[in-house]
Design a protein around this nucleic acid. Structure first.
Lengths: 222, 222
DNA sequence: GCGCCGACCAAACCTTGGTATGATGGCCTT
DNA sequence: AAGGCCATCATACCAAGGTTTGGTCGGCGC
C-alpha cells in the first residue's frame, strides 16, 4: 500500500467529513452550519461541550469549531481535555473577547487556528479545510499503525525478542547466543515473525519495527 | 544553562548558546541582555534585522528574540525571510501593539512563542529555554543527517541504484534483472555500498535509506 | 601514453538465511 | 486424558548473501 487508506482494494465511498460546531449562541451555530453546508460539508452543531461529548460520535473524520468562552468549560480547557479523552480531532477555536496569550496558548496546544470574531467566512473555511486535511492524514497514519500493532500483537514473547534483535541487525547466531537458544530455533522464530507480520523481506520488517518504535540497546548509527 | 543535547554522555566543550535580541529600543535591549546574562546565557543584541544579518553569525546554537515592529522590516516578514535564507534558528516574537491574527500567524509560521509587552521575565526565560532546547534537537538531527548525506555523496550512481533497490527489499537477482546486470555485479556494488555507508548490517542500511528519504516505486507495506 | 577509477563479469568458495520433517516437553483448556 | 499452542532442537537440503581473485572496457586527467 502506498498512500492513504488503500488498505482494502475496494476504497468504499469515503464517509463525508463532519464539522462539529460547539457554540452557545444559536445564531452563530446557524450561521456556521449553513456556511459549512454551502460547501458540501456535514455539520453537527451543539451548544455545549457536554452536549458534544454526549452526542453519538462515530469514528468519522472531521474537525471541531469551538468557541473559547463556553458555559461551564472554556474552549481552552476543553482543548486540553480532548487529549486526555483520546479525541484527537483537530480543533479550530474562535472567540469574541480573546487576547494574545490565549491565542498563543491555544496554538501551542495544537489548535489549527484561532479566529477572533467577527471573522471572514473564507478564513473559517480555509481553517476547516486545513483541519480536515490534517485529520485525514492523522487517521491514515493511525489506521496504518493500528494494523501494524495488531500484527505485532499476534507474536509470542519469544518472537518479539527475536524480531527486536533481528531488526537491530544481529545475525541469527548472535540472537541465539543472546537468548540462549540454538541457531535453528532462532530461524524458526524468525520465519514465524516474517509470516505473522506479512513482511516480504527483512527490509520490510525493519521498517515495521521502526514504525512500531521497537529499539534494542544495540548500537545503531541511525 | 538550561539543558542541551543530552545525546552524548559527555557533550563537553559545548559552545554556549547565544540569544540574539533584535529590538530598536535600547532600553529593551539592555533589559533583555541583563536578563539573559543573569541566567548564564550569551547575548548578542542589535537594533535591526539588517544589523543582525550583517553581524558575524557563526554556526553556534541559539535562538532569536525579535520585536515584530521594526524599522524597515516587520518581525513577521522577517520570520518568513529567515526560512528563505536557510536560517532555522527558533524565533520568539514580542510586540507592544499586536493583535490576535498577528500572533496566530506567527505561531503558524513556527514561532516558539509570541509575547505581548509587557511580559514577565520568567515567561521570556521559559520561552528561551524551549527555543534553545528545540534548537539543540534540530542541530543534532541536522548534524546526523548531514553526516549521512555526506556518506551517500561518496556513492556512485550505480551504487545508489543498488542501494535503493536493496533497501526496498529486493533480492540481488531481482536487482540484477531490473538494472540489466549480472547478480555478481550487484553483489559487488552492494558490498561497496555497505562499506562506504559504514553500515554494519542490512537493517542499518535500511534505516539509513529511510532517513535519507530514499524510496523506490516498489510497493512496501510501510 | 599512462595511471586511475568506475562499471562490468566469472569461477570458486564460504557463510548465512530459510524451510522442511520429525521429535520432546511444558502448560493450559476442554 | 486429550488436544492445542508454544518453545525447543536435530538433520538435511537448498537458496541467498558475500568475498576473493582475476580480468575487460571506457573515460578522464596529467
Amino acid at each position: 500500500m502506498i498512500r492513504s487508506s488503500a488498505a482494502k482494494p475496494a476504497p468504499e465511498a469515503a464517509e463525508p467529513p463532519t464539522v462539529h460546531v460547539v457554540d452557545d449562541d444559536p445564531a452563530i451555530r446557524d450561521a456556521l452550519s449553513s456556511l459549512f453546508r454551502s460547501v458540501g460539508l456535514a455539520v453537527q452543531a451543539v451548544a455545549s461541550v457536554a452536549e458534544f461529548l454526549g452526542s453519538p460520535r462515530p469514528g468519522t473524520p472531521g474537525c471541531l469549531v469551538v468557541d473559547v468562552r463556553l458555559p461551564g468549560l472554556s474552549g481552552l480547557d476543553f482543548q486540553g481535555q480532548m487529549a486526555g479523552l483520546g479525541i484527537r480531532m483537530p480543533i479550530i477555536l474562535m472567540t469574541g473577547h480573546g487576547d494574545i496569550p490565549m491565542s498563543v496558548r491555544a496554538m501551542k496546544a495544537g489548535a489549527v487556528d484561532f479566529l477572533a470574531k467577527p471573522f471572514r467566512d473564507q478564513d473559517m473555511l480555509d481553517a476547516v479545510a486545513v483541519a480536515l486535511e490534517r485529520d485525514a492524514r492523522r487517521r491514515d497514519a493511525e489506521t496504518a499503525h493500528e494494523a501494524l500493532a495488531a500484527l505485532y500483537e499476534t507474536l509470542t514473547q519469544r518472537e518479539r525478542e527475536v524480531l527486536a534483535q533481528v531488526t537491530a541487525g544481529l545475525m541469527n547466531k548472535q540472537v541465539a547466543g543472546n537468548l540462549g537458544l540454538s541457531e535453528i530455533t532462532v530461524k524458526i522464530h524468525r520465519g514465524n515473525v516474517m509470516r505473522k507480520m506479512s513482511a516480504r523481506s527483512l527490509a520490510d520488517l525493519v521498517r515495521m519495527a521502526e514504525a512500531l518504535g521497537i529499539r534494542t540497546g544495540g548500537q545503531t548509527s541511525v
